[in-house]
Amino acid sequence: MLLRYITRRMLIGVIQLFCLVIAVFFLIRLLPADPVSRLVGLNSSPEGYEQAARQLGLDRPLFEQLWIYLGLSPDIAPGLLQGSLGVSWASGSTVGSEIATFLPVTLQLITLAFILAFIISIPVGMLGALNPGKAADKGVFVYSLFAGSQPEFWWGLLFVYVFYFQLGVAPAPLGQLSPMTFPPEPVTGFMLIDTLIAGEPAKFFEALHHLMMPVITLAFILSGPIIKMVRQNMLRALQSDFVLYANLIGLPRKRVARYALRAAMGPSMTLIGILYGFMLSGAVLVESVFSLGGIGQYAIRSVLAFDYPAIQGVVLVITAISLVVYLLLDLIHAAIDPRIAY
């Protein structure tokens, strides 16, 4: 039952990704951009231009390009079917390997930000839900609206100004480690894990120190919608008939609280999934403020360079991760709430 459900969802996901690939492929080629002249410069000779176009494969008909990208002509170049995302036009290395170095940075950043946001949001949201209509609740509510509607890159800059320039407690926003530090051998790509594998606790704490500001910035923004969600779901649970009845039948307070908490958790899963997916690309701005070198910055670089294979690769990978996250959270939801049938 469960396995069938997962298989079905995966299948639908693959179809969705396939449609997405096609859509993105045509979309970027329909837009009036000229990647060749971006690469060779506007002043190149017609011969140089043609040569570059040939090198990029842009001299082939559109559908042939798609075929190659999908991996249906493996004799020319490997494509998706062979597990290849193509070769970056800007750097010449494979898109897959580039994403593999950039993606862990982003995943590490937003996962930590989510954890921190939850640690803040759950008690704060509960505080609001347990005192509906009182000053504490109003404060919680206004905070959640405020935090949820802020320009995160600006807050990142503000934090840099206050904590780096004025107070000097934060490092300069120049990457995952200080520019003077020699990074550890990348094994997983996650800096925090790689430093530990390399057995260099000093670098681990340095990385943590550098992650502090971006994580706080993102967690601040994330705390808005999460607090709002915790407060709303908890309020709804506390006002539900079955919590009222649990009180009427004389269950101890602790038990009633557990009833409400479990009821509030289920519906939160969907929103968490959406937020996580959103953050995968939404972290772009914070990454660039702190020069972290995540997938978002890779996307910016690729977009500004008209690097089509890289753009396609980034969109594909981010969407695929979002779909997997949605699936995982749906499974957790179903485990919490027996009413959700596969």
Binding site: D241, L244, Y245, L248, I249, G250, A263, I336, D337, P338
Partner: peptide, 18 residues
């Protein structure tokens, strides 16, 4: 629950769904 018991309308909503 010990000395006074109660049942309410809409019983399915009064039971914990989980």
């Amino acid at each position: 629950g010990r000395d006074i018991g109660i049942i309410v309308q809409n019983p399915r909503a009064a039971l914990n769904p989980m």
